[in-house]
């Protein structure tokens, strides 16, 4: 299985490859990708240099152009596609069917991956992307169990890529409007969930209060582990009491499921976190490189805990092992 790793900066790209990534995914520094945060992402020149660096070390670069073009600005997304192809990207990760159509028509030889943002969660949806646009790989949404992934693999010849570590979206990916409601900025069209421009932290006698777009999301006691300031991981007061009504602040960690995912026929494992620093990239990529290598050669795994890097200092197997159905 390939190890697909995130990079929000050229330095992170180099760290990922040095730590053992088979491929790195990254995006341009604009709203064409779903991690459009300040100080993050790649200029055209940085992408060209990053691709040269990766290819020199036998690694691939996948360019995420995975937000949904706005009606009045499709040229921005099409230009991103053209520039990524011209730079020598090994694959484009795309969510919007209009943009996939553009890739298929203008760059028929370009390898196309279906982004997790497209939420292709069944064989029929995957078949549509394969037959219509020539998609070679689909990144599966984080709502499927390992058994369901195996079912899908029995009905498709398309490669699949699944997340094994990092942040989780509790909503249908590419369709969530919680952050848009609170801030007026869309994760799916402008690439920024819980934009930092709308986040506020306040230190009070009770601890740290986090707000998004004026909505109070959480209040953490001084030593209590925290999560991202997203509405889906907010702690609210309801008639049933106080608590996390959508999802706890917790990160996915599927280290223990790698053998099952390989048996299911998964082609690639993906680490979330283009917004994270080099220390995260280096540690998490090295962890999964070691885990994959020990899986391949059958040796004893000596795996360190990734808890310090997790949201809420806790991890979950997420939907891979559904216990709520």
């Amino acid at each position: 299985m390939e190890l697909i790793c995130p990079a929000g900066t050229p330095a992170a790209l180099r760290s990922a490859i040095d730590a053992g990534a088979d491929a790195v995914y990254c995006g341009f520094n604009d709203e064409t990708n779903a991690r459009n945060f300040p100080g993050l992402n790649f200029s055209r020149d940085e992408l060209r240099k990053g691709i040269a660096f990766a290819h020199g070390r036998g690694a691939k670069i996948l360019v995420a152009i995975n937000t949904f073009p706005r009606a009045s600005a499709t040229a921005l997304w099409q230009r991103a596609v053209d520039d990524a192809v011209e730079a020598g990207a090994d694959a484009l990760i795309v969510a919007d069917i209009g943009l996939m159509d553009y890739v298929a028509r203008r760059h028929p030889n370009q390898r196309l991956h279906v982004s997790v943002q497209a939420a292709a969660a069944n064989p029929d949806a995957i078949a549509f992307y394969v037959e219509t646009f020539g998609a070679r790989r689909v990144v599966l949404p984080r709502v499927l169990s390992v058994a369901e992934i195996a079912e899908i693999m029995r009905e498709t010849r398309c490669e699949t890529e699944v997340f094994v570590f990092g942040g989780l979206c509790v909503m249908a990916e590419g369709r969530c409007s919680l952050s848009s409601y609170a801030t007026g900025k869309s994760p799916n069209m402008q690439g920024v969930c819980s934009p930092a421009s709308h986040v506020a932290y306040e230190e009070t006698g009770r601890g740290t209060t986090s707000r998004l777009g004026g909505f109070t999301i959480n209040c953490f006691a001084p030593q209590e582990a925290a999560g991202y300031p997203t509405l889906c991981k907010g702690r609210f007061s309801t008639a049933l009491g106080d608590g996390y009504i959508f999802e706890d602040p917790v990160s996915l960690d599927a280290t223990t499921l790698l053998a099952g995912l390989r048996s299911a026929g998964v082609a690639a494992l993906k680490i979330e976190g283009r917004q994270r620093g080099r220390a995260y990239i280096e540690s998490v990529v090295r962890h999964f490189r070691r885990a994959l290598d020990t899986l391949e050669d059958g040796s004893e795994a000596d795996i360190v805990s990734l808890t310090p890097f997790t949201e809420g200092q806790a991890s979950t197997l997420g939907a891979y092992r559904k216990t709520w159905r």
Binding site: A11, V199, Y201, F220, A225, A226, P249, G277, A279
Partner: peptide, 21 residues
């Protein structure tokens, strides 16, 4: 670059106030 800023936030070892962007 030896520690991850988000990880420090999660473990409450880093505090931020003001312009988060």
């Amino acid at each position: 670059g030896r520690v991850d800023g988000d990880a420090l936030m999660f473990s409450r070892q880093l505090g931020i106030e003001g312009d988060v962007e």
